[in-house]
Amino acid sequence: MTLQFSGWLPGGPTRPTTARRCELAGGEGAVVRYDERADSLDFAPDTGPHPHGLAVVTARDGHWCLTNLHAEDTYFVENMESGGEFVKVAPRRRDIPIPFELARLILPVPRGAGMVKVFGPEPHYLAPSALSGSAANWPRLDEDCMYFRVLVALCEPQLRGCPPGAVPTVAEVIERLGDGRPAYRISRAAVNHHIDYLAMHKLRVGEWAGAADGKRSYWKREAVVAMALRSGLVGEQHLRMLPSRRVTARQGPGPSRLPAPPPRSRR
């Protein structure tokens, strides 16, 4: 597997990135440290105590493990292949198995949050002859129906890398599906109907969301997005179902609307 320092979390201090890489074979480990002189994260072999380390990454057969060396900070591991999936590693937790083959490890340091890309070991799969013949429990969604396009629009921000809490409003869903064209605009009542149908009939999130009392008007949108992403019902391949984002050419400044100065009198 490969570890690669990929820079600093967007929104943090802007500074040049020093490329650091580390290759690990099965059973080997690496300590992730902050190099103050180079202002980057670097890697060292896991050979013993780690008084100045941030984390330990260990390669296993078919997965990799993470140890959080910090006494107070929680670390985050994001799945770069499926938006919205992440694992939290509590302080002092040791050898947490990480199931993501391609991941982004977020590590806080005194000057910001550094990002380490992890290219994990190739996962193992069962042979087709060993698969179970029992029926799956996840609901089957019809990708040709409008409710599925509404669901994709709701999931789009997280599929494109936004934080897990980024769920569009009904107005934003209407704008995204219509792409600014009145002829393709869907009504607010229709969007709400599709969200209710997903929440109550297809995904049945009201049974576990714990917010069906109506105190929060947006709980259904949050619940259907969480359910769809966690269960893999919506993925990046479905983004092609949404209208392509139109980019208009940049226009120059228009003529000034200030009144012309009065002509000077000639004497």
Rank of each mutant, 00 (worst) to 15 (best):
C162K: 15
I96E: 12
I174K: 09
H52N: 15
E101N: 11
V31M: 09
A199P: 07
I106W: 01
L102A: 04
I174F: 07
Y184T: 15
T14V: 14
L198T: 03
G53V: 05
E81T: 15
R93E: 12
E236L: 12
R176Q: 13
F76M: 15
L126F: 09
V205S: 00
T67I: 03
Y184L: 15
D35Y: 02
V56D: 10
L102F: 00
G161S: 10
E122F: 11
V116M: 06
V150G: 11
T58N: 05
N79F: 05
A223Q: 04
K220S: 10
K88I: 13
Q237Y: 00
V152D: 07
D179Y: 03
D144C: 09
P10A: 09
R15H: 05
T74S: 14
R204S: 05
L126Q: 08
S231D: 10
L54D: 05
W64T: 00
Y218M: 06
G48N: 05
S6V: 13
G83P: 12
A189Y: 10
G206A: 04
H194C: 08
G84V: 02
G7D: 03
F119H: 13
A30K: 08
N68G: 09
A90V: 07
R250P: 02
G53H: 01
M115F: 00
G206P: 09
G235L: 07
T58G: 01
F148D: 08
A260Y: 00
I96S: 06
E236M: 08
Y34N: 12
P123K: 10
H70F: 09
P139W: 01
G232Y: 04
P253E: 15
L229T: 03
R160S: 04
W219C: 02
W64E: 09
W219T: 05
E122T: 14
P16Y: 13
Y184A: 15
R267E: 05
D39F: 04
D61Y: 01
L131S: 02
C22M: 11
R257G: 15
C65G: 09
M80I: 10
L66T: 02
A136T: 09
P99F: 06
A38V: 07
E156H: 02
V116A: 04
R37W: 03
R149P: 04
A25M: 12
G12P: 00
R257T: 15
A228W: 01
